[in-house]
Each structure stands twice: as C-alpha cells, then as structure tokens.
Design a protein around this nucleic acid. Structure first.
Length: 429
DNA sequence: TCTGGGGTCCTAGGACCC
DNA sequence: TCTGGGGTCCTAGGACCC
C-alpha cells in the first residue's frame, strides 16, 4: 500500500475562503472580522471567513435566514463580485505556475501541481515557499496538501486546514503514519464521496477513509460504480486520475440567471434571453468551438405560492455555429414558442450543446461564404474589444439598456482590478 | 419579501435493428 | 408448443464537484 506513495508527489494548493479573501485584499480593515459572500442574486451564503464559521453561519444557508446573526455580530456581507474573483484567481494561478512545469487548474481557487521533482525531505519547505510567494504577490492565503495521488493531495489539504498545528501545509508523502490519518478522516470528507454515498457507507459500518479503502473492490464497484472504485484506489496510492494540464473544451455551455425581480413582459424576458445567448456564444468562441444544438428555458419561482409554469425547448441548428447573430435569432424564436402570458418568471436560460471544434463548422447551403467570414471578423473584433475594455463594452441592442431583470447584488464591492472607474484611490494625509 | 450557477461522468432501461 | 441473441443509440436520472 505504501510503496508507490513516495514516488509521485502532487500538491493541491487551495485558496482559503477564496471569495472572502478576495474582498479583504482591498479592505484590510476586514481582517479578523466575520465576513460572508453571497451567491448570485444575494441568495445563499457561499463563502465565510473563519470568524463567520465560528459564529455558526453554515455554507449554503439562505441569506434571509442569517439576518439575525448578521445584525447581532456585525457580520460584513458582500454580493458575489466575479470580475474581482476571476482576476485575482488568474493572478494566483500565474504565481503558482512558477512552481511546477505541470499544473492543473482545477477550479477558480484550486490547482494541482506535480512537485515530484522536489526531494521528499524538501517538500514541506517548498510548500512554505509557495504559500509565502502567493501571499506576497497576491495577498491571498493558501493551504497546501501533498499526496501521491490527487485524491490523497485533496485529503492532505483537508488536514492542512484542520489539524491542530494548522499552518496550512500537510505532507502525506512524508508522514509517519498514513493509516492513522486515513482512519481519522470521515468518509464524507473524501473527494468523490458525496452525502449519498457517505450515508450508504455508514449504513454498512464504514465510517472513515481507511475502512473505505479496505473494502473489497467488487463491493465498491457494485455499489458506487467505477468512479467509487477509482477513489478507493487513489486512496491506496494508486493513481487513477491524471493531471489535466490543458482544460478540455466544454461539452455543454449553459448561461442562466435568476432575476432580481419577477419578470412578466415578453419584451423584458426576451432581453434576458438575448443577453444570455450572447454570453454563451462568447464562451463558445473563447474555446474555439461551435454548437449544433440550442436550448431555451423559462421558469416561474417554485418557492412562491402563485401559478407555476416552466418549459424547455431545444432546436437543432441547421449547422454548427458560434455566431451570436445566428444563435440569438434561433434563441429568440424558441423563446417566443414557450413564452406564456400571465406568469411571473423568475429564471431563464440558454444552453448550447453538441459542441464541435470550430474547424468543423460549415457554411449553410443558403449562406454566402463571404457573409460567414464577415460575421467571424465582426465577432473577433467584438470579443477583442470586450476582453480589453471589459465585458459588455459592446453589446446587442436587443439585450436592453435598463435591464430591470438584472440580478440583485445589493452588497457589491468595486471591481478594483478590472474597471478603471473603480480602481482604488489612495489618500495621503 | 428573500432560496445560485455551471459543470462532469455513469448506469439502467427502452427502442430499434439485424 | 416453442418465443434468440447481440448490438447501438438515446434518454432520464442519479451521483459527484466547485
């Protein structure tokens, strides 16, 4: 079980309470104070500072359910500011890329680094350097977990944050008693085991990671599919998950939002649909793909006691495309077919699927190649301008100007790093 | 009053075909 | 009376992740 463990070393670097840490970069007065960040539309709590966690604020709690605690303890509240988080994430990842030639950006706040080239005895110090450099260059605190597989690196990261000596670093490749660590890790903390499988395992008397990876392969395979079996092998130190250094293109792209207020009119809802389609199309072009299938959905608020309606319609495009013009045209047509008057809509969205490489796009039978090329030039230009000067610098008139349906973000902080108008100002006294 | 958004993969079962 | 066997494709649903 242990022979392969020391050969390979994967570090999982994870930003601590990432969204909260981002808010604190330009608000150092908020250090050591309870801070929370809300999901889109100021719906639920999605990030909490350690102080807020200690006060009993749980992940995912609806905002309105914690108002009392917020008032009582003067918790600082922020709406999600993705412009800020995305930019700071990029800076953290750039910094991390200096520490390994092989890196997988796993999410907005996590990356796996292959650090097998670092001798076992120096890995802890290496992790410290990572931590210090990221802190100095970006002000974002990170934790580092090291293991011989991705799953073990994840598990190590858990202990980096939760062990008594919590310095934010834990090296499982260099630890005296791995079995003891696995034994102290509850099954629900294992990466790849969610609450359903955790329940199932506990029902069978399996409570910790050590007991889990000692289960017979056949049992795991039968009850938890091949995915569960991979997880078990990874915990045993046998790598089943490769480092994905190049993100594979998305197979589906969804752009959807809940509205800040219920929307009833055909025109306002159509604005939202056009806006989401434009966003999805831009994502599509960014990964150099084209979509063959388009879906549109609308829904009322399932939590409200009022007439409910939801519908979804999909449409096979005449040929794969990434043209916003084309996609907007079909999305609008689809929307017109499912819209029903007299409902208070809360959410709408657009899905693009059956995604192919842009080189596979063909010119439609009744389109002129010149027209298609013209479209491509227009979008390349628009995308470039929006990239340089900020999203929505150029947008479609049909997206609307006022956009009363926009999501609610009452506690939004400035876009300190991505918008000239909101750049921080230093006052000299 | 107020409840997010965006992804992945696997499996079972049905339709259909030869 | 006997009532095959193997394959593909699609879909819905379930599990997971951040």
């Amino acid at each position: 079980m242990s022979s392969t463990r020391s050969d390979r070393a994967i570090a999982l670097v994870d930003c601590n309470n990432f969204y909260v840490s981002c808010e604190r970069v330009f608000r150092p007065d908020l250090r050591h104070k309870p801070v929370i960040v809300l999901s889109n539309n100021d719906g639920n709590v999605v990030a909490r500072s350690n102080e807020a966690k200690k006060l009993g604020i749980k992940f995912g709690t609806p905002f309105h359910e914690c108002r009392d605690l917020i008032a009582q303890y003067q918790i600082h509240v922020f709406s999600s500011n993705y412009a800020l988080y995305g930019d700071l994430s990029h800076r953290v990842m750039e910094t991390l890329s200096m520490f390994s030639p092989h890196m997988e950006i796993y999410s907005i706040d996590e990356a796996f680094l292959d650090i097998s080239f670092v001798p076992a005895s120096e890995r802890f110090a290496y992790a410290q350097r990572i931590q210090q450099t990221v802190a100095q260059w970006t002000e974002i605190p990170v934790s580092v977990g090291i293991g011989s597989t991705k799953t073990l690196a994840k598990l190590a990261n858990h202990w980096a944050k939760h062990s008594d000596n919590a310095c934010g670093i834990f090296d499982l490749t260099n630890c005296g008693n791995c079995d003891e660590i696995l034994k102290n890790t509850p099954v629900e903390e294992i990466w790849g085991i969610g609450h359903r499988y955790a329940e199932l395992l506990k029902k069978h008397g399996v409570y910790n990671a050590l007991a889990f990876c000692k289960l017979p392969d056949f049992w795991i395979r039968t009850h938890m599919t091949i995915m569960g079996l991979r997880t078990a092998w990874e915990l045993r130190g046998i790598a089943c998950l490769a480092l994905e250094e190049v993100a594979p293109p998305r197979k589906g792209i969804v752009s959807s939002r809940s509205f800040g207020i219920p929307v009833e009119s055909f025109e306002a809802l159509r604005e939202a649909i056009v806006s989401y389609t434009a966003r999805a199309a831009a994502k599509l072009r960014r990964q150099r793909s084209a979509a063959s299938f388009l879906g549109v959905f609308v829904a009322t608020n399932p939590f409200a006691r009022e007439p409910q309606y939801s519908n979804f319609i999909s449409y096979r495009l005449p040929h794969p495309t990434a043209s916003s013009f084309v996609l907007i045209r079909y999305a609008t047509e689809c929307f017109a077919q499912i819209y029903r008057k007299g409902f208070r809509y809360k959410k709408a969205g657009v899905m693009l699927s059956e995604i192919v490489d842009e080189s596979a796009t063909t010119c439609g039978l009744f389109e002129s190649p010149r027209e298609v090329l013209r479209h491509q030039r227009v979008f390349t230009t628009i995308d470039e301008i929006n990239k340089r000067f900020g999203r929505q610098t150029i947008f479609y008139a049909a997206e609307g100007i006022e956009q009363p349906w926009q999501m609610q973000r009452k506690f939004l902080s400035p876009r300190y790093t991505t918008c000239w108008k909101e750049i921080p100002v230093v006052h000299a006294n």
